[in-house]
Each structure stands twice: as C-alpha cells, then as structure tokens.
Amino acid sequence: MSKVVTLKAFFEEARAGRLTGIRCGRCGEIAIPPKEFCPACQERAWEPVPLDGHGTIASFTVIRVPPRGRAEEAPYAVAVVKLNEGVSLLGRILDIPLDALKVGMPVRFRPLLREEQTVVAFGPP
C-alpha cells in the first residue's frame, strides 16, 4: 500500500520545521512529495521518511529583478540544495550574506513563514 504524502501535509510539517520525503518500498529511491509512481522503478509503494534537513548548495542565484509583490525582499538568494539523503530541494536562502554563497556550502532547512504560506528555506547549518 502506498502512503500518499499530500502537498498540504508536506507544508504543514515543514511549517513545524520538519522535512518529509517519501521512500520507495521496492527500490529505496527517495523523492520529494507529491508523487504516485516511483520514477526509478515504477512501483507505487511509497512510505513517508523524515529528512534531516542538512545538505549542500548545488547551485544558487541572487534574484535582483523580482516578480510582482517581492520588491521589498530583493535582492534575495534562491538555491537548489542537495540533501544528505540524496534528494534535492529548491528554497530561499536566509541569514547567509549574498556574497558569501558558494556551490558546495553546507546549509540546513528551516521554514520561511509568510502569513498562511510556508516557503522552503535554508539557513546556516
């Protein structure tokens, strides 16, 4: 039986500071929800798995021309972070000077709370 982790559940957990992945019951592939079939083996047997939130920056950018509604936040950094469990996650960078950012730099997950919205973010480890 596949245990579906909905986006709602993922972000509720994230709001409380916990990252949730899913692990394939057949091949062990770890993914970020939501997902039905395992992209690696096509099985449909996910189990939720806690992710410890630690990882390193795989790539990053500093957004200086933001979309509408984000003007006060710019410039800000967005990074793809490779987590220790092997999956990656994109998020906002918090509390790291923009000119100190480097590919390979260790970071740790923390939620960025914006009223009702929860945004994945990463700060110093």
Partner: peptide, 18 residues
C-alpha cells in the same frame, strides 16, 4: 515550491549557469 521561493525565469537559467 518554486514561485513561493521567488524564482524568476532568469533565476532558473542563473541556476543552470552557476
């Protein structure tokens, strides 16, 4: 995940460039 983080179209390719 991505729009709430504030990604833009140039931002996507900046990640590729980096």
């Amino acid at each position: 995940f991505e729009q709430p983080a504030g990604i833009t179209f140039p931002g996507v390719f900046a990640l590729v460039a980096r």
